[in-house]
Amino acid sequence: MNSLQCIYLREVERLRLMDRSVPISEQERGRRYKHLARILACDAAIRDLLAPVSVRNLTPR
């Protein structure tokens, strides 16, 4: 696992462990959503880069 993946995993875990009983504003909810969406997009990009070229060429677009 590289350092970027470790950073993402720590951030996802931090967000997951936040106290769900405390109400949050719509602005904070939106910020968290955007942050998680960016993490997932980066994770997908990393996975694409790690996939063998032959597998990427077979994947429908």
Rank of each mutant, 00 (worst) to 15 (best):
21 S>N: 01
29 R>Q: 08
16 R>F: 04
34 K>A: 10
57 N>A: 11
42 C>W: 03
49 L>E: 07
1 M>C: 02
1 M>D: 00
2 N>W: 00
25 S>W: 01
35 H>C: 10
40 L>S: 14
2 N>F: 00
2 N>E: 08
24 I>C: 15
31 R>A: 14
49 L>A: 07
45 A>P: 13
21 S>Q: 04
49 L>W: 00
27 Q>S: 08
33 Y>L: 11
17 L>C: 06
58 L>C: 09
50 L>G: 07
34 K>L: 11
10 R>V: 02
25 S>F: 05
10 R>K: 07
35 H>N: 03
13 E>N: 10
26 E>Y: 10
42 C>R: 09
15 L>D: 03
40 L>H: 13
51 A>Y: 02
7 I>Q: 00
49 L>D: 08
57 N>D: 12
38 R>P: 01
24 I>Y: 04
54 S>G: 12
51 A>I: 00
17 L>H: 00
28 E>F: 07
6 C>L: 03
25 S>I: 03
20 R>T: 13
11 E>D: 15
22 V>E: 06
32 R>H: 03
30 G>W: 07
45 A>K: 13
43 D>N: 07
32 R>W: 02
46 I>W: 03
38 R>M: 10
28 E>H: 04
61 R>E: 15
35 H>K: 11
37 A>D: 10
45 A>F: 14
9 L>C: 03
28 E>T: 11
28 E>V: 05
18 M>G: 12
26 E>T: 11
31 R>K: 15
9 L>R: 01
35 H>Y: 13
13 E>Q: 14
26 E>W: 07
51 A>G: 14
61 R>Y: 14
37 A>L: 14
16 R>I: 03
38 R>S: 10
41 A>N: 09
57 N>L: 14
13 E>V: 06
8 Y>L: 04
30 G>E: 12
37 A>Y: 05
12 V>A: 02
46 I>M: 03
4 L>T: 08
19 D>G: 02
7 I>T: 05
46 I>D: 02
13 E>M: 07
30 G>D: 12
18 M>L: 13
16 R>M: 13
57 N>K: 13
48 D>L: 14
40 L>P: 05
18 M>Q: 15
51 A>L: 04
37 A>E: 12
50 L>Q: 15
44 A>V: 02
5 Q>C: 00
20 R>F: 06
33 Y>K: 10
53 V>Q: 09
55 V>Y: 09
2 N>D: 08
54 S>L: 09
6 C>E: 01
15 L>P: 02
31 R>S: 08
37 A>P: 05
16 R>N: 12
27 Q>C: 12
56 R>G: 06
46 I>A: 06
46 I>K: 01
15 L>Y: 12
8 Y>S: 04
4 L>V: 05
17 L>V: 05
58 L>A: 10
46 I>L: 08
54 S>V: 13
9 L>S: 00
38 R>E: 15
40 L>D: 10
12 V>S: 06
10 R>N: 03
20 R>D: 10
27 Q>P: 03
10 R>F: 00
36 L>F: 11
41 A>C: 05
28 E>K: 14
42 C>D: 11
51 A>W: 07
46 I>P: 00
14 R>K: 00
